[in-house]
């Protein structure tokens, strides 16, 4: 029993780490530009698909393929900001949501066109010999996912709290006009935010694809889960998003193992709804009361 639970825990943390990275990307873009980016999952898919293609399609060494794939996705994220979001300033919240949905459909369409509907695989970074922990096992790739996520979360935290550039991005999210007046290049900060977000998505993609495989539509569910995690943690709270991601991954993995794998997604959403009913601003979100 306990071995099983340990096993679910490993799976949960691995899945949760992916969710956390997507949610973190959500939170960063939301903070920077008030946009809920429904194309966040497509960043994950694009990173993964590019990596698979560059590795097995053009025979590049794996690390080079990964780096290139991530770089490409960053460019994609920045272009999305530059050519779609930035042009739609003043659009209402729902309108921007539709723009990001359009973008996600567009990216899916591009992936479909380039790589077809096949489910694609990628080699594990350091072999597939399972590591025994009690009677539970762990793949080296699981460690890559957890470790990679840990490092990136810390790096993001450091970036926003201890670097001038990071603080400048935060300043823009607090007050664009004021940030502009004190000489911050707001446009550039937005590019950085979207680039960073795409980077996190792509990293999640390349890290987890050896375990989960990928396909042109793999981003949809991930995007939804990332959004759920971000909401669970409290929209706009990056570390809350990370916690929300891990929590959601754990809930789903436990639900799948102990209750029913068919209903695992449903159970995740039920928990999310219950949390929202009890805490309307998520677990770590600040309650915002409108003053009149």
């Amino acid at each position: 029993m306990w071995d099983q639970i340990l096993q679910f825990l490993f799976t949960g943390v691995t899945v949760g780490a992916t969710y956390a990275l997507v949610a973190l990307g959500f939170a960063i873009i939301y903070n920077a530009s008030d946009v809920v980016n429904f194309a966040q999952g497509e960043f994950v898919m694009m990173g993964a698909m590019c990596a698979v293609f560059l590795y097995s399609g053009s025979g590049l060494p794996l690390p080079v393929a990964l780096l290139l794939a991530v770089a490409l996705t960053i460019v994609l994220g920045m272009s999305f900001q530059r050519f779609a979001i930035a042009r739609a300033r003043g659009a209402s919240v729902v309108s921007t949501i539709i723009i990001t949905i359009g973008a996600s459909i567009f990216l899916r369409g591009v992936a479909l066109l380039l790589w077809g509907k096949d489910i694609l695989a990628m080699p594990h970074f350091s072999g597939e010999t399972p590591i025994q922990l009690g009677r539970a096992t762990l793949l080296p790739q699981n460690l890559w996912v957890m470790g990679g996520t840990g490092v990136m979360v810390l790096a993001v935290h450091y970036f926003f709290h201890h670097t001038t550039l990071g603080k400048a991005v935060i300043a823009c999210s607090c007050n664009r006009t004021a940030a502009h007046l004190v000489g911050i290049n707001v446009g550039l900060m937005m590019l950085i935010a979207y680039g960073l977000s795409a980077f996190l998505g792509a990293m999640a993609g390349v890290l987890v694809t050896p375990i989960t495989f990928t396909s042109y539509d793999a981003g949809v569910m991930l995007g939804l889960k990332g959004f759920s995690a971000a909401i669970l943690g409290g929209m706009g709270n990056p570390m809350g998003a990370v916690a929300g991601g891990l929590l959601l991954g754990l809930i789903e993995s436990m639900a799948a193992g102990l209750i029913s794998s068919g209903y695992k997604d449903a159970i995740g959403f039920v928990v999310l709804l219950l949390v929202l009913f009890l805490r309307p601003s998520g677990l770590f979100g600040k309650a915002s009361a409108e003053r009149v």
């Binding site: 739609a88 309108s95 539709i98 723009i99 949905i101 359009g102 369409g109 066109l113």
Partner: peptide, 22 residues
């Protein structure tokens, strides 16, 4: 044909960018 999904996404995006009120 194969371009359908991509074009649909592009149209959706551009319509909202250029006519944000609908």
């Amino acid at each position: 044909e194969d371009f359908e999904v991509m074009i649909f996404g592009a149209i959706l995006m551009s319509m909202m960018i250029f006519l944000p009120q609908g």
